[in-house]
């Protein structure tokens, strides 16, 4: 059994809202294994994006972090800003949802790709620019030489996301965090970008943490899936297990919200709404919307051990 690249233990993220600390992420634990694609899924506001940001400690100072994010021997959450700068962009890289606004409008594409190489590998700008050219080839941007001198506004959305990927891959990181990388793109471009990420992962043997709310994306690329609801992790497991035998009532309900082609299938939205962060119910946070009931629902359930684990009292011993 290979050891995990990164171990997230009891991670919690709190923000101050109206003078009160609210836990947006409530003690979640998961591992990132070498050379895998881990998808973190959940509806908007479930805390998946801030979870991703906290892996590199990119959240603003106003966020209070608890637990640990072990990367090798080091806990990312207790590193100084100086030490974090060494890790960010070199060993862990991140690409974001909005390719339109995530690139600096006044710097050339070449400079933005070359920057991490200069910062981390000590390359000269001219050497880094040559490497940037290769990276553009890697992300399959045609006419790379010309693109280097262009500005982001001269590129299409899909191109820009490829440039973001090139920036992320520049220093050959061990982990690439992709926060909804395809949400802002056209469907055809989405497929291309996902295929590109998958190919690169296989070629370079890195791990990808993909944050998404799109179960179609998950089915396409994931090796493992972690399902989040209201700041908690409710189920994790291999992608086949999650899709074929979803265990947690929320995962089951989530899968029923995806349209399918067979006539017999009927879409059923999840009833109710995610409770506001200031008024989370005690115990299982899904219980107010859950069809099933267990006498222990008022107590927070823990993820069961094993490769396919679930945090639900009604499934205790079943998964």
């Amino acid at each position: 059994m290979t050891s995990p690249l990164m171990q997230i233990e009891d991670l919690s993220i709190s923000f101050k809202i109206d003078d009160e600390w609210c836990r947006a992420v409530n003690g979640i634990s998961f591992d990132i294994m070498p050379n895998e694609t881990l998808c973190i899924v959940g509806e908007s506001g479930c805390g998946k994006s801030i979870t991703a940001m906290s892996l590199m400690k990119l959240l603003p100072d106003s966020a209070k972090l608890g637990g640990s994010v072990m990367f090798g021997e080091r806990n990312m959450l207790s590193l100084s800003e100086r030490e974090l700068e060494d890790v960010r962009g070199s060993r862990i890289a991140m690409i974001f949802q909005e390719p339109m606004t995530s690139l600096n409008p006044v710097l050339t594409v070449g400079e933005q790709i070359a920057e991490p190489l200069v910062l981390h590998k000590g390359m000269s700008w001219s050497a880094a620019r040559r490497e940037a050219r290769n990276l553009l080839d890697l992300v399959r941007i045609p006419d790379a030489q010309k693109r280097l001198g262009q500005y982001p506004h001269e590129l299409s959305g899909g191109m820009r996301q490829r440039v973001m990927i090139a920036i992320g891959l520049a220093c050959r990181p061990e982990i690439l965090i992709a926060d909804e990388p395809t949400t802002a793109l056209d469907v055809t471009i989405q497929a291309q970008v996902l295929a590109l990420l998958e190919d690169i992962r296989k070629e370079q043997g890195l791990s990808i943490v993909m944050i998404t709310h799109d179960l179609g994306v998950v089915a396409n690329v994931a090796d493992r899936v972690a399902v989040m609801y209201a700041g908690e992790m409710v189920e994790t497991g291999p992608v086949e297990a999650i899709f074929d035998a979803p265990s947690h009532p929320y995962t089951q309900a989530l899968l029923r919200t995806v349209p399918r082609a067979d006539a017999a299938f009927e879409l059923s939205p999840i009833s109710g709404q995610v409770p506001p962060i200031q008024a989370m119910p005690d115990g299982c946070r899904f219980s107010p919307r859950c069809a099933e009931e267990h006498r222990a629902c008022r107590v927070t359930p823990k993820l069961s051990p094993g490769p396919h684990s679930v945090a639900c009292w009604a499934r205790e011993g079943a998964a």
Binding site: T101, N104, E115, H120
Partner: peptide, 14 residues
């Protein structure tokens, strides 16, 4: 802006 976050994610110093 988002691109400042991108620059931080690259490890650019303050």
């Amino acid at each position: 802006e988002d691109y400042i976050r991108t620059a931080r994610a690259k490890g650019a110093p303050g």
